[in-house]
Design a protein around this nucleic acid. Structure first.
Lengths: 142, 142
DNA sequence: GCGGTCACTTGCTTTAAGCAAGTAATAGGT
DNA sequence: ACCTATTACTTGCTTAAAGCAAGTGACCGC
């Protein structure tokens, strides 16, 4: 709610800029949830797998909204809740996340479903296209 | 030098695992240097663009080596220096970094050379292949 | 040998993350 | 209308990480 300030950029390098925006332990996990699950509420994120502290979650949601990666709207079905959705800018992180999944599946012990990973590896662009179709339907192309 | 301990993994999710390995403000900048420049020495990284503190740099180099993304060897030409190089596992982060460059160039104000970005966008796999050729030559395929 | 460079260290301050408990607004049942 | 549970945060505190400035010992070129 309060006027949030985005993190200052360390340099004009695109990698450094990216890291200034989402280069922490939690931001990409929220994006992951929004891309691959139907977690859309505060409590969904809080309960998802890795146990983020609620104060950190609040902070990260504000930051991501401030950077234009997600947006927030009241849940029409429940006045206590908010729904968080990916913006186009946020959705465009899908290729980054897909490549991270491929990398981790190749080099680390993970729970990534092998079939899904093979599909990502075979044609990442096509895979992202499939995600985009679902995203377009759910968020009305924000 | 001391037996380094890798960060514990928060979950078996491939994204979470990736972030546990390189999800901080500096690791990917070191990988970037190793991919796109010929910075190979401690002082190169320390002086590169974003001014990392030397104690943090030491820590990050140890961690990246411990995770098997880079390796270290004495500089044959100067006994005070070490040369840091990407392993295959480290090089395989190239697609992740390429997608981050594309994202940042599209959505943020950066200094990424437009021609290079277009080349990345047109055919990311081919671009990575070009990088791999240079890497193979410099690090003898570690 | 000597002055300078190199890869780190050390000690300290500041910022961020993590934990546990609390709160105001709302939902849903009676 | 009233009561209880739930939800999205807050607050206060502790712990871990990042940042800063100043060292240190090995090693280079001279």
């Amino acid at each position: 709610m309060a006027m949030r300030i985005s993190r200052p950029r360390r340099s004009s390098c695109p990698i450094a800029t990216s890291l200034d925006i989402f280069g922490d332990r939690w931001s990409l996990l929220i994006i992951r949830d929004l891309l691959f699950t139907d977690n859309r509420r505060f409590s969904d994120f809080a309960r998802a797998g890795e146990a983020i502290a609620t104060n950190v979650l609040t902070d990260r949601l504000e930051l991501l909204e401030c950077e234009g990666l997600i947006f927030r709207r009241p849940d029409p079905a429940d006045g206590r809740k908010f729904l968080y959705e990916l913006t186009g800018k946020g959705f465009d992180l899908a290729p980054v996340i897909v490549e991270m999944v491929i990398w981790a599946a190749r080099h680390e012990r993970t729970a990534a479903p092998p079939d899904l990973v093979r599909e990502m590896e075979r044609d990442p662009k096509k895979f992202v296209k499939g995600l985009r179709a679902r995203w377009g339907r759910s968020s009305a192309g924000a």
